[in-house]
Design a binder for these strands. Structure first.
Length: 367
DNA sequence: TCTGGGGTCCTAGGACCC
DNA sequence: TCTGGGGTCCTAGGACCC
């Protein structure tokens, strides 16, 4: 991504290897869009020895489709005004927002190309697909005015899910998995300074039937216990009598970023309240994980179970990037995390042990 | 390919309030 | 007291994306 920022500060990362650039206004410095595209490709080869595919157009939608067209080493330019003509012969599956289900329905209507889609009456599409139908019609004509967003949007949910190697109906396995995921989710919330008001669970059985259950709390939380308790409450009646293939725990409905204080819930700073001690223990275990990896600390109940390690961070997630002290937008050339031990480590570990009955688990893959 | 994990957005129905 | 309508919030499910 650093290569890309040499051309414009307006870079919107889409994934680890994909981004939109707004190069409006660079023509006097660098040249036409096509010239910028050429230079970007050259710059990427220079720095990474990898080829790249580039699409140049007046909108993100058309640029994306253009860049997909000649992967992995293409440069496709669509001049302003030529969008509809460029899209018309392409199959509908090229279009953003057309997945398997939508494509199947469209084919039933005899719609095979984006030209067919553009020629289909909007009201027919709206009747069948709702709001999405109108969007599809616009897109088929190349209409898309979504700008390039240089700032990453705030996350709306944080979740973990896990697919079992073998479908299970073992109660202990199910409960421990929910606990591990609740723990991972709450840890990510805490380090991002977020509290969530809604907890959801996702359950998929051996026949691939998927259900979701959610509950909204009175008080938003960033703690493992309430998230786990609700997840368990929601899941328990649903997993009875089925073999579970996948379990997920998620949170959403975030309030304002929380201020984690050093004082008790009652605001006292004298004798440490129970709540404040618990808080400190959690902070200490978060700190250990930050410095020694997400596997450095785990709950006693999860020791040796091989259950999903909580606290995996996603380098593309804005929530986690904030946690890692990086800019919201992903940058492949990101700086390394510092991993220096502090003298207080042993005390912190002891506190975690004592207060939360958690255990430190040495992991072979970590030094 | 029998289908992983983390997300977003949309729709529809029900509860509740005014 | 009953009725209807509208707005908002919550819940469940589905489609889609990388």
């Amino acid at each position: 991504m650093a290569v890309l920022r040499r051309f414009t500060p307006i870079v919107e990362p889409v994934s680890i290897d994909e981004a939109f650039l707004d190069v409006t206004g660079t023509d006097r410095l660098i040249g036409s869009g096509e010239e910028v595209g050429r230079q970007i490709k050259a710059g990427i080869v220079d720095e990474t020895q990898l080829t790249a595919s580039v699409g140049v157009a007046a909108s993100k939608l058309v640029a994306k489709i253009a860049s997909d067209l000649r992967k992995p080493d293409g440069l496709v330019v669509v001049e302003p005004g030529d969008e509809a003509e460029f899209l018309a012969p392409l199959p509908i599956s090229r279009m953003w927002g057309v997945g398997e289900s939508t494509a199947t329905v469209l084919r039933e209507y005899g719609v095979r190309t984006l030209g067919d889609l553009a020629a289909t009456p909007v009201d027919l599409l709206v009747r069948r697909f709702g709001k999405h139908g109108a969007t599809l019609h616009d897109r088929a004509l190349g209409i898309d005015d979504d700008p390039v967003h240089a700032e990453a949007a705030d996350a709306k949910s944080v979740s973990h899910e896990h697919t079992f190697d073998v479908d299970t109906n073992d109660r202990e396995t199910i409960e421990r998995t929910l606990l591990a995921m609740a723990d991972g989710v709450s840890g990510r919330l805490r380090s991002a300074g977020l509290k969530a008001a809604t907890v959801h669970v996702k359950i998929r059985d051996s026949s691939f039937r998927t259900i979701t259950r959610q509950r909204t709390l009175v008080e938003p939380t960033d703690q493992t216990e309430p998230i786990f308790r609700i997840a368990l409450d929601l899941a328990r009646p649903e997993v009875r009598g089925i073999r579970v293939r996948l379990l997920g725990v998620g949170t959403s409905n975030f309030g304002e970023p929380s201020q984690i204080g050093m004082f008790g819930a009652d605001g006292s700073s004298g004798a440490e309240s129970r709540e404040a001690r618990r808080r400190r223990a959690i902070e200490a275990s978060d700190d250990l994980r930050r410095r020694y990896g997400h596997r450095a600390v785990t709950r006693g109940r999860l020791v040796g179970t091989g259950l999903p390690a909580p606290f995996e961070r996603d380098p593309m997630s804005p929530t986690d990037r904030r946690t890692l002290g990086e800019p919201d937008t992903a940058d492949t050339g990101r700086k390394q995390l510092r991993a220096t031990a502090r003298p207080g480590l042993r005390d912190a570990a002891a506190e975690v042990d004592a207060r939360l009955e958690q255990a430190e688990v040495p992991q072979s893959e970590e030094s």
